[in-house]
Design a binder for these strands. Sequence first.
DNA 1: TATCGGAATGTTACCGCGATCAGTTGCGCC
DNA 2: GGCGCAACTGATCGCGGTAACATTCCGATA
Lengths: 338, 338
Amino acid sequence: MTQKNRSLTLRDVSEASGVSEMTVSRVLRNRGDVSAATRDKVLTAAKELGYVPNKIAGALASQRVNLVAVIIPSLSNMVFPEVLSGISQVLEDTELQPVVGVTDYLPEKEEKVLYEMLSWRPSGVIIAGLEHTEASRAMLNASGIPVVEIMDTDGDPVDAMVGISHRRAGREMAAAILKAGYKKIAFLGTKMPLDHRARKRFEGFTEVLAKSGVEVVDREFYSGGSALAKGREMTEAVLERSPDVDFIYYSNDMIGAGGLLYLLEKGIDVPGQIGLAGFNGVELLQGLPRQLATMDACRREIGTKAAEIIAARVNDVEKEGQVTLAPTISFGDTLRGV
Amino acid sequence: MTQKNRSLTLRDVSEASGVSEMTVSRVLRNRGDVSAATRDKVLTAAKELGYVPNKIAGALASQRVNLVAVIIPSLSNMVFPEVLSGISQVLEDTELQPVVGVTDYLPEKEEKVLYEMLSWRPSGVIIAGLEHTEASRAMLNASGIPVVEIMDTDGDPVDAMVGISHRRAGREMAAAILKAGYKKIAFLGTKMPLDHRARKRFEGFTEVLAKSGVEVVDREFYSGGSALAKGREMTEAVLERSPDVDFIYYSNDMIGAGGLLYLLEKGIDVPGQIGLAGFNGVELLQGLPRQLATMDACRREIGTKAAEIIAARVNDVEKEGQVTLAPTISFGDTLRGV
DNA sequence: TATCGGAATGTTACCGCGATCAGTTGCGCC
DNA sequence: GGCGCAACTGATCGCGGTAACATTCCGATA
């Protein structure tokens, strides 16, 4: 309680406890041999003073920073908090700590955030996506630390990568939909040219449809606003425009849920008259009147695997660096099974 | 591309550009007078080498760290990402940068996270809640930096605070419910003794009911799982146990939405037979078949105000440090208006 | 022409800590 | 009693920058 404005240093604790700064340092880090008596003296003094070590100085001196930069496009997507939670869970058992940066899906902002984070000399980087500016890629290369690119595996990583193939996810969903006999398929998504994963899903999706001579009969994109409400509105708009649609593929579960609620209200037979599918497998949707067909994006597992790779590499342990997880389709109640 | 493992320093840039390290430092920070010619030389060299400044060293030398610690209980609550976004928005216009720590509603983890963050000597702290361990409070006090406690204003802050009165929020909702003529009121919430804000809302709620001689006829608490699904289940359970319930107050919108969906499916008249209200005003719910009554928690504004206070104090600008925002009740379609 | 002043650049002294190496004890043992 | 080793403690240096002060250079001024 009694401290001047200047913040405390090892020296203060050392003076208060009558030992050298070095010994205080050892006690506080649990390194090397210190007698129980001295240890107690030091700990008491430190606690009494309310001393908090200065990691800045520590990091500079030891050339070690126990931070892992985690760079993601958004926090409001629900997907990323889940990935984060997987990362945290694994890092909790190590001395490493995640630090999050958000890019808002903007490449230039990503570059800025990356620069900022690298300037703290973290022990590793986990970054969403495989698409980065050339400068970002160069920084990652030059950083000399382990880098794991997550979410997506359709492309070439700088170093390691963990994710699913969104192209394949799109393909599989298309195949399932065709197999169930739907023919007039619409696609509803986000207006985000920079969301490469959504784009790849769409590409995979149309690719398979095309092979069967099917084309997406209608599509609509939104941005901003409540996803649930947008799902509703877009679904309504599509049905008005293309009343013969018999399947709607949504680029995420949230708008899918909005669509589902809308159709049920209108008394439309789901999945008889119209089938639906989303993407992500968000837990939240378990409470819907009907279970939306979706595809698990392995969010948590992506986080844990990525963190494990970082943790291993930081300790110079070799570890497979290209992990492609297999998303599983969940038919729910809105996509006729085989 | 051509770099050894050792990371670059000012010296490398200085040698590459033929000027002193000090001059390089000045160029890179845009400080002091440097001739255009030298500036160009330095910038070129820096870019060519791919030099990224070491903030650790810089921070140690300058005793300035442009980080603001933001400590929140959870990221999966949707409430906090929104607060965060308010914070980021304001800090974006300053040189400050938020760094997030998550406590999982555990006081000891909060203490640990706080300690960890303070050891990086941030310029300010924004921390959720007014309840902290004694040690945490001591650390905040001793840190000598601006501290803003957010979300809640029912209590005494260490320094500054921004939020709403959850007690009052509970009271107002109770008053509105009574005024609308409901009598058999149930409460459904989370099993989180450590969520002090939910607790305070509940206290305010029952306090007002008590004044009118009304008691909560039933209550139920959940933990874990999909909030939407839990809202469903709990609502079902309550109706079974207490069929004469005519109002259900949910501690958050998500479970409220689950309850709403359940009741609508059962063909129960909402708000005729049973009225509903939640808490938070989450945007997400705008897509529900009926608009759930709720109360806006001013999440984004809490973030911006808190960040503004930090930004002001960091620059030694005086600024009112006790901000109580007024949440507004939104009747929606599930609470009869007056 | 000698002096002055400001712009441009360099030098020095740390910032707070940890790696390293150098003592200093105490103790068992021959 | 002296030796060797283990257990403990301390002194020094430097991590990569920046603040503060010192210096150089040059044109303007009297």
